[in-house]
Write a protein that binds this DNA or RNA. Sequence first.
DNA 1: CCGGGGCCTGACGGGGTGTCAGATAGCCTC
DNA 2: GAGGCTATCTGACACCCCGTCAGGCCCCGG
Lengths: 229, 229
Amino acid sequence: MASRPTEDDEGLLDEEEPRAADGRRPGRRGRATRQRLLDCTATMLNSSSYRELKVVDIAREAGTSPATFYQYFADVESAVVVLAEEMAAQGRRFAEHVRASSWRGKKGYAASEALVDEIIDFWEEHRSVLRVVDLATDEGDGRFANVRTHLLNDLNNALAQVIEEMTAGGRLPTAVEAQATAGVLVAMLAHVSAHRYGFEFWGVRTADLRTAMARIVYWSVSGQKPPTT
Amino acid sequence: MASRPTEDDEGLLDEEEPRAADGRRPGRRGRATRQRLLDCTATMLNSSSYRELKVVDIAREAGTSPATFYQYFADVESAVVVLAEEMAAQGRRFAEHVRASSWRGKKGYAASEALVDEIIDFWEEHRSVLRVVDLATDEGDGRFANVRTHLLNDLNNALAQVIEEMTAGGRLPTAVEAQATAGVLVAMLAHVSAHRYGFEFWGVRTADLRTAMARIVYWSVSGQKPPTT
DNA sequence: CCGGGGCCTGACGGGGTGTCAGATAGCCTC
DNA sequence: GAGGCTATCTGACACCCCGTCAGGCCCCGG
């Protein structure tokens, strides 16, 4: 039943606290500039690789100087972290979805398909930011790892909980470790969703990936064969 | 039955062709220097992050100058590609293993466990290089994507073939698309293996991940519940 | 209309990259 | 065993981006 540890959220003190480099609380003009910088960052993330994203370029795009950028963000990644956090906040629904669904029989399989769809769509919508999150996380950047956790942790625990219940109900063998299974499923969902285009390139259709994953999720959670349609 | 397309391997013309910057074929001394550079790159990859790997440092470590490095490699990544290719050559065994195994009954589950173990071990052994391969691939670097493909493609096709056979034999519903299922399984195996330590950090044991994955692989391939031990 | 603090920037030192032209080392020939 | 040729190495340099200041601009409140 081990639940993932969670770090202290200093972010809860104030809604948002976009502090400037010297600790000042920016006024109206400052916040506008900050937002402009953020928007440009998001835009440029769509058109260029994350590695090529230079402070100079963002600043120029926003019609300001590099020095101004550093007044609001410690580096490029800090700006992207903000974008990532905004995105992650929208990811809560996955877990809610899992908890609200019935996981038995045809309904269970439908829930599985719906979950997979939701995740694939989410990754599609936020792909440029998520790509950076994955990259930076793999590179060992704790800030991004934290965001990624917030995004996936709820889903992970929700799935684990369902699996626990199924095990307790005798539907799954006691040998299955709920957290491990949930973790593997989440990893699969996130990774495959992130690499849709890679698969498409190799001639594997997203629709088939979706079915393959839905089947695995359903079987892993319920212990039953998915209904063949 | 769509098989992944494969790129032309110009590498087959000559065993290895470590050409210098100006197209010369290096002599004995040159090859020794090149190898020294390569060894230092591998060493430093273990102790520092890939992003921090500077040409200057590698050169200094190898007791030579940066300019010399550029005589053998276009950039740091080019050197790592060579290391990655050497590693990938060892990954052939996964596919052989899949093809040589029986995938039914207890033997099938044992094969599944063995495959998972083999992959986890491989990722452990080559983790520093594989981390770069994953990172650079995600970043869109074609050279690394190519290596990654060579490494996983065989396994993917081998699994897909087994799944096809199972489908033909009526053991799996015809709705399952072999390549998609194989792709999802490979993605899961590679991604979870690459993030073992992440899971351990969250209190999920590798042994449990292994079981969870072995069960999913076995079920996906054979359509049967894994034997409960 | 006149401070003064919030906001911006020009200018700079630092460190890494990639490329020369020229120095050096190894090897073969006579 | 000296000359000469090529392979190999390197110091020096121009470039680029980073991140930081000190100082200047702008705007609002009084």
